[in-house]
Structures are given as structure tokens and as C-alpha cells.
Amino acid sequence: MKFKLTYKPYGQHGVLVEWPASIDEETLHDVLCFKSKLNSDASQNIIEVRSAYHSLLIIYCQFKNGFDDEVSRLKSIYTSKEKSKKLKSTLWHIPVCYDAQFGVDLESISKAKKLSEAEIVNLHSQTIYTVYFIGFLPGFLYLGGLDERLATPRKATPRLQIEKGSVSIGGNQTGVYPSASPGGWNIIGNSPINFFDIKNESPCFATAGDHIKFYPIDLKEHQNIKTLVDAGVFPIEREVIDG
């Protein structure tokens, strides 16, 4: 393994594993490989493994033989070659209505970036984004891969209420608000898809390592899809890709 990892205690029951500080796909892939090895590890003691850009948090019931012992065990799991099976990932096609009715910040971005609104929609919907992890709100996907030309600073004053489904840009990131929330990102559209649904066994359809591609729809289609989503019968188009 080419990464030099550090292992730190985090509270009474946790080990934080950190990769060199960087946000990139190679790091993400290695983080997720380690996570998948841990998930298939039989140790009943682990109650939770959570990944972020360059870290894994492992929470235990309790350390069987102390922190140091557990770290040596983790190190050997990390370096073990056993079936480093290819990680499967899914590409999700997500409809977004970029109509000005939703995209309330399209005009200001268009002025600031000297791009037409059509160009913004084009740049935003032609990229395949990578899901790095889920955080901030239940079902909020941290997506990497935004076209540099669309990077827009967060608003100086956050809005008190951003609508559920708002597709937005904050700095060099883009994301969809899974529920109504205060927020400082710039809103360019709205997706009728539920990014978080307690009715499903797994409340998020996407998971770290998956990919997202947005496709533009008009107001009418937005309404139609929303009706189907509310009835629980809208199938999100997807392709399975090998990692």
C-alpha cells in the first residue's frame, strides 16, 4: 500500500485512521477499500465504520486488548492482500430543473462568471460527480468534480430557509439539499428526487464512492416526476460500474 496512515485514539471507543491530507479519488478509493475490508471483518466489537475524504472513524463496543493492540490488528488488515476485490459503484442519473423559478442564483452567477445560464446548466449537467461521503444533513452528498468555471463563493449571509431538493454550488463543491435547511450555497435548480427517505431500508440510495450525473428537465417534467416520487414509484436511472 502506498499510503502512510496514522492511527489516533478518538474518545473512549474510537480509532481515527487518517490518510495524508488530500481530497482526490485515489485517496477516496483506498479509504473505501479499507472500509470494505473492515466491514467484512468478523470482529463483533466494531459497531460503526464511517468514512470521509481522507479518514475512517472506527467505533468499538470496547477495545478487547487496548488501543495499541487494535492498531496493530488494523495495520495488518490494511496491508493484507486478500481478495482486494474490485469495489462496485453505481452511477445515478438525477433529474434537475434549472428553471429560474428554482434557480434563484443563476442570474448572479451568470453575471459574475460571464457565462450564459444555458452554459452554466451545460457545465453543471455534463460532469460525472463522485460521492465522497454523506454529512452535514441526513442525505447530503459531498460531491467532487465541479467544473472550475462554476466555482462560486458561499453567500456572505446564509439564507434562513433553503427548499428541499435545491441544487446548489458552494465554493468548488456542488450538492443537493435533502431537506429544507438554512444554508449559504448558491441555488441553481431543484431536483424532485428524495435523497433521504426513512421508508427505505437504506435511507440513502447513494453511498460513498458512487457517482452522480444530473440531467436537465423542465418545470412540467419536474412536477410529473415529483408526483411519481411522492407515490414511491419513480425509478432512478442507474448504471453499475466497476471500480
Partner: peptide
């Protein structure tokens, strides 16, 4: 600031 990472109650 750090690269966004896990937090928990008590942090």
C-alpha cells in the same frame, strides 16, 4: 481548518 472529517458528541 481541517479537511472535513468525522465528529461525534463530546468533540
Amino acid at each position: 481548518p481541517i479537511i472535513t472529517s468525522a465528529v461525534m458528541p463530546g468533540t
